[in-house]
Structure formats: C-alpha cells, structure tokens
Design a protein around this nucleic acid. Structure first.
Length: 175
DNA sequence: TAGGCCATCTGGTCCT
DNA sequence: AGGACCAGATGGCCTA
C-alpha cells in the first residue's frame, strides 16, 4: 500500500476498491473516531452488497480479530511507554520555549546536541588536568579526549555549543 | 486550506 | 509460538 500525500488523501474519491484497501488499516477508527464511524457505516452498506457477511464471521475471523485486539492493546501500551520516555527526556533538556511542548523530533535533535555540548565541556575540562607523575598529560580525561576526538574528528567542540544555542534560538522563534 | 504532528491500527519481521 | 518492534496508512486537531 503506497503512502498518499495528505492532500491526495483529502481529495480521494471513495470507491469499492478503496474501501477494501483501507479497511485493513483503518479498523481502529471505528472505535476511536465517531465521524469516521459514520463514514464507514455508509461504506459498509456498499460492502455488504458485494461481500458475503458469512465470510467475515468465520471462526477463524473471530480468533484473528481477538488476537488483533490484544496486539493493538499491547502496541498502545508500548507507544505510551515510548511517549513517557519522550516526556521524561523533555523534562531534562533545557529549552527556552517552555510554554509550548517540544515535538518528538525537536526533543531528539535538541537532546543529541545537548549531549554533545555537555560531552565537549567535560572533555575540555578534563583534558586540562595533568595526571600526577605524567607531565603535561591528562589522566582519565586524556583517553576520553582521544577517543572523543577520533569519533568527532570532523567536528569542533565549540561547534556543539553554537549548534545547541542556535537550535534553542530557532525553537524560541518557532521556526 | 495545506501542512505538521500525533494516536492508533495493521501486517510483516525479528527475537526470545 | 507469542510478544516486541517497525513502518505504512489513516483521520483528528491545531496553526499559519
């Protein structure tokens, strides 16, 4: 099933082929969306003319729909957990536009750059501390710093801070 | 009204 | 085998 643009979806005309195609992926909205339920009611009348009711009510069908409902519930729970995790992440990322909730993509992007900024800050600090007996060489920070530089050889540490603050600024402006 | 974001369902695939 | 995970599809809500 190919993805349609929203405009295309809005414009699409309903025919029997479409009804069959949409049926499998849209059963949910019978439960959640009253308006959709009404729409589907009309489609159903059309469908009944073309499909055998018995065919849809076989034992296998019932078993399948029971399993499907259970899977749906598990998937809902899974998504709720995921959303809780997103919310927890939002709460630990400093950002300016507090009155408006960060979207998921904003949350992830901001978190990534925030981590980069913190990492760079820590490494900058630790690389300045020489270990006892090793002149001019950092202790643990040295290895960390080398490792970090290997992974981020094409980036500069100040860049993270710039990127992060620019991002916050753009979110604040709602862009 | 179009587009962004979201919740939900669904079928396929992966993992235990 | 059954649950977890994933990506696609769809409609609702909100905003510019």
């Amino acid at each position: 099933m190919k993805a349609k643009s929203k405009a295309a979806r809005r414009r699409r005309s309903v025919n029997i082929e479409d009804i069959h195609e949409q049926r499998s992926s849209s059963e949910a909205h019978l439960v959640k969306c009253p308006s959709y339920k009404e729409k589907r009611k009309g489609e159903d009348e059309e469908l009944v003319k073309l499909t055998s009711k018995k065919k849809r009510e076989t034992a296998n069908g019932k078993e399948h729909s029971t399993r499907r409902l259970e899977s749906n519930e598990r998937e809902r729970q899974r998504m709720h957990k995921l959303n809780n995790a997103f919310q927890a992440l939002r709460e630990v990322i400093p950002h300016v536009r507090a009155e408006k909730k960060l979207s998921k993509i904003e949350t992830l992007t901001l978190a990534k750059n925030y981590i980069n900024t913190l990492t760079a800050t820590i490494l900058n600090m630790s690389s300045g501390c020489a270990a006892p007996g090793q002149e001019g060489r950092p202790a643990n920070g040295g290895k960390l710093f080398q490792h970090y530089q290997q992974q981020h050889s094409d980036e500069d540490n100040d860049g993270h801070l710039k990127q992060y603050s620019t991002q916050i600024h753009s979110f604040r402006q709602g862009s």
